[in-house]
C-alpha cells in the first residue's frame, strides 16, 4: 500500500492525483469485485432473504489514532454495529473520507489499513467510496462518512417496544474503555493497559440468535455512554430501567481516568459493547454464551426493567447506600473537572 507523503487539495479534485490515491491505496486495501468496477454506483449481488437494514454515520475522533484503533476501525466497526443493533447481519459498507490539505499520508494509510482490517474481521465488504479534500484549517485532518447495508434474517427482530417489565439488562463487557482512552490521551496520561474497546459485534451476538435467545432490544452505548443509551431506550419503551451501580463493570484503568478527570463511567462512550434487553429467565444462559466469546468475557447483568411510576425517573441507579438516584441524559459535553 502506497500513500502520498502529504495530501494536496488536488487529491480530492477528481484528476490524476485522485486516481492515484484510489488505485494505490484504496483498491488494494478494500479489494473486492464490486468496488473494483469503479462505476458511479456499485452493483451488488442479490441480498439474502429478510428485511434490508440501512444506516449511515459520520466519524470524527481526536486523536485519529488511539490505543486499540483509529478512525478507520472506528468508522467501520461503528457502522457494522449500527446494523447489528437492528438485528441485521451486516453485508456492505461505503467509506468516504474528507481530508484536510497537508494531512500526513501515513495517517491516511493507517486509517485505510484500519478500515480494511475491521471490514475483514467483521466479514463485510466496502463496495463504494469517495475522497474529498478541504483547504488547510477547514477540517481536522481526517473525517470519515459511511453507509452500511445489512439484512435482518426472517424471524428476527428487535425493538425497544418489545422491552417488558421483568427484563434483565446485560452489558457485554467493561464500559467506557473507548471514552477513557480518548480522554486520557487528550489530558496527558499514558497507559499500556488502557485500550479502546472498538470492535465489531456481529461475531459476539450472532451466537445468541443462533441459540434462540429471545432478545427484546439491542443498543451500543456509544456517545453519551450507558446513561444516554438507556434514557433513549426507556423513553421509547415507556418503561423504567433500574441499574445497579455496583454491578457496572469498569476496568481499573478506566476507573482511574474517571477519578482523575472527574468523569462518570455511566457517560463514557463504548465502541465495542452492546446492551441487551431480554427476559430475566434467559439472562444466565445468555451471559454464559456471551462470556464464551473473546469480546464478551466481561459480560454482566447491570439492571432490570420495571413499570414506570410517578416520582421516578425513566432510568435510575441503585447507589451504594441502596437508595435510587435518577440517571439523566448528559447536559452538554462531559468535561474534565477539578472541582
Amino acid at each position: 500500500m502506497k500513500a502520498p507523503q502529504r495530501i494536496l487539495l488536488a487529491h480530492g479534485a477528481g484528476g490524476r492525483l485522485t486516481r492515484e490515491l484510489v488505485e494505490r491505496l484504496f483498491l488494494p486495501a478494500f479489494a473486492n469485485p464490486e468496488l473494483e468496477d469503479l462505476d458511479d454506483a456499485a452493483l451488488l449481488p442479490e441480498l439474502p432473504p429478510g428485511r434490508p437494514a440501512l444506516t449511515t454515520d459520520g466519524h470524527v475522533v481526536d486523536p485519529p489514532v488511539f490505543a486499540g484503533g483509529d478512525l478507520g476501525t472506528l468508522s467501520v466497526n461503528g457502522t457494522v454495529n449500527d446494523l447489528v443493533m437492528a438485528g441485521a447481519r451486516p453485508l456492505w459498507l461505503t467509506w468516504a473520507v474528507i481530508l484536510e490539505e497537508g494531512l500526513d499520508g501515513e495517517l491516511l494509510a493507517t486509517c485505510v489499513e484500519g478500515a480494511r482490517r475491521a471490514a475483514e474481521e467483521a466479514g463485510v465488504r466496502i463496495a463504494a467510496g469517495d475522497t474529498k479534500t478541504v483547504p488547510r484549517g477547514k477540517g481536522d485532518r481526517i473525517f470519515a462518512v459511511t453507509a452500511g447495508l445489512g439484512v435482518v434474517p426472517p424471524g428476527r427482530g428487535v425493538n425497544d417496544r418489545n422491552i417488558a417489565p421483568g427484563d434483565a439488562i446485560l452489558v457485554t463487557g467493561t464500559v467506557g474503555d473507548h471514552g477513557a482512552t480518548i480522554m486520557a490521551h487528550r489530558h496527558g496520561m499514558e497507559s499500556t493497559e488502557l485500550v479502546s474497546d472498538c470492535a465489531a459485534l456481529n461475531g459476539l451476538l450472532e451466537p445468541l440468535w443462533e441459540a434462540g435467545v429471545p432478545i427484546h432490544a439491542l443498543h451500543d452505548p456509544t456517545r453519551g455512554g450507558v446513561a444516554t443509551t438507556c434514557n433513549e431506550a426507556a423513553a421509547r419503551s415507556g418503561l423504567r430501567f433500574v441499574l445497579d451501580q455496583q454491578a457496572l463493570p469498569v476496568a481499573p484503568p478506566v476507573r482511574a481516568v474517571c477519578e482523575l478527570l472527574g468523569l462518570d463511567p455511566f457517560y463514557l462512550a463504548c465502541e465495542g459493547r452492546a446492551l441487551v434487553w431480554l427476559p430475566e429467565a434467559e439472562a444466565d444462559r445468555a451471559l454464559e454464551i456471551l462470556r464464551g466469546h473473546p469480546l464478551g468475557r466481561g459480560s454482566a447483568r447491570i439492571g432490570e426493567v420495571v413499570d414506570s411510576a410517578p416520582g421516578h425517573a425513566p432510568v435510575e441507579v441503585r447507589t451504594v447506600s441502596g437508595a435510587l438516584r435518577p440517571l439523566d441524559l448528559l447536559s452538554g459535553m462531559d468535561l474534565p473537572r477539578i472541582c
Binding site: 433500574v242 420495571v306 441503585r318 435510587l324 435518577p326
Partner: peptide
C-alpha cells in the same frame, strides 16, 4: 440535587 436527589427528596423508593 437535580441529578441525584430530586426524586429521592420526594421519598421515592424502589
Amino acid at each position: 440535587w437535580y441529578r441525584h436527589d430530586r426524586l429521592g427528596s420526594r421519598g421515592a423508593r424502589p
